[in-house]
Amino acid sequence: MQIELIVNDKSVTWDIEKDEFLADTLRAHGFLSVKKACDTSCCGLCTVWMDGKPVLSCSILSMRAHGKKITTIEGVAQAAEEFAHILTAEGAEQCGFCSPGFIMNVLAMKNELDNPTEDEIIHYLTGNLCRCTGYMGQLRAVKTYLGVA
């Protein structure tokens, strides 16, 4: 079937299978920043935005993206890079595999929450697993990025 959607501010028409999931569709169209790691909707690596909200692209049927606005890290490169510089200054990307999804959720949080507390930051980002860093460096980076103590 065909879907029409907006990906990173560009209208596209894609042919998809009916039981295809968005993360696979995006990768097939070259958005290789979208990673998958769990198969059970709980690691956060595949995070993209649908109509501005962070979602798990591995669990969204591509046909449901019809008419929607999808954003990957490629579509918000400038803002993402600003944070990525802070993240890498901490060394908190380590293997980097979880970073794009993590960054997408950090940017979503920045859009959604005003001056979040440390607890609120941790809560918002809980759905992003990372096995390398132990999370502390990521937290330092997020706090620097948001300018919170």
């Binding site: 909707s41 995070t47 962070p54 979602v55 798990l56 959720n105 759905g127």
Partner: peptide
């Protein structure tokens, strides 16, 4: 519901 997996999961 606030501790179910993560924000992205709960958005879906």
């Amino acid at each position: 519901v606030r501790n179910i997996i993560g924000v992205q999961f709960r958005n879906g």
